[in-house]
Simulated assay, not measured.
Amino acid sequence: MLKNVGLLDDSDTLERSMAAVAAAISDFSRVKILCALMDGRAWTATELSVVADITSSTTSAHLSRLVSGNLITCLSQGRHRYYRLAGKDIAELLEKMMSISWHRISPVKTRIPSLLRIARTCYDHLAGEVAVEIYDFMVSEGWFNVDGISITLEGRKQFQQLGIVFDPKTRRKECCACLDWSERRFHLGGYAGAAFLIHCEQKGWLTRTQGFREVNITSDGKRAFKKLFNVGV
């Protein structure tokens, strides 16, 4: 009988872990902190207290809860401590929660800010209308295999022509279709998505503002996206 009880306890491990994650996310202030960290950068506790509109002591308690829940990590650099999402899987979880939550909000009561909908970051890759249209173009041109998690020879050739070379030693998924919470369609995620965002920044096609997920498409970027992907901005 005791042996069976032990087995039952072991079988509850996954459920208890899921409940712990849900509990860590359940607070409104912690949700605001996590959403702020979706820009992919590391933030100080002071910056997060401002965005969450809570006191420093309360912020410290919330950050400790999120760190212990393995949702965020703390980085020490000199006398400063920075916080960021624990990884891409956490960002994907939050993005899916945004998609589900937005579906339940009446469009009459609220609207997605236009700049946020046009282009924004989804952790370390590009999201929004522009990203979805670029991904649609890549798919139609055969850049990815049917499963959407690997790049074709044609796609690799096209990425190389853009100036994007993939690291063969990376352990990250090469590419994936990431569901865009505002568009309800897919944009490019994975290693390719992150590399593409970095490339766009380096080329001056877009700019990012510290502390915000909105992405500004430059005039050069508008011309490049139209020429390369037939995407108008």
Rank of each mutant, 00 (worst) to 15 (best):
M138H: 06
I151Y: 03
V146P: 00
E141M: 15
T152S: 14
A131E: 04
T110L: 06
I149R: 14
G155M: 10
K169C: 11
H187T: 07
G211F: 05
G193E: 01
L188V: 03
S182A: 15
F137A: 06
L162H: 08
E129G: 01
S150F: 06
Q202R: 15
V165K: 15
R117A: 08
R171Q: 12
T209F: 02
N145A: 11
Y191N: 10
F196M: 15
V130T: 14
P168K: 15
E141L: 14
Y123A: 07
V165T: 14
Q160M: 12
P113D: 03
R171P: 00
T121H: 00
C178Q: 11
P168D: 13
M138N: 05
I134H: 03
S140M: 13
K203L: 11
V130E: 08
K157M: 11
I112S: 01
Y135I: 09
R184P: 00
L188E: 05
K203V: 05
R208V: 11
A192P: 00
G211T: 07
I149H: 09
T170W: 10
D180Q: 09
C176S: 12
D167M: 11
R156I: 06
F144K: 07
S150P: 02
W143P: 02
C176I: 10
N145G: 08
A192Q: 03
F196G: 04
L162V: 05
D147K: 09
L206K: 05
I198D: 12
D180T: 10
V146M: 12
T207F: 05
E133S: 13
A194E: 13
W181C: 09
V139L: 15
S182T: 08
C175F: 07
I151F: 02
E129Q: 14
R184T: 10
A177M: 08
S150E: 08
K203S: 11
R120M: 05
V165R: 15
R111P: 01
F144Q: 06
K169F: 14
G211R: 09
R208W: 01
G189Q: 05
R185W: 00
V215A: 04
L115K: 14
T152Y: 04
H125W: 09
V132W: 03
S140C: 08
C178T: 13
W143A: 08
W143D: 04
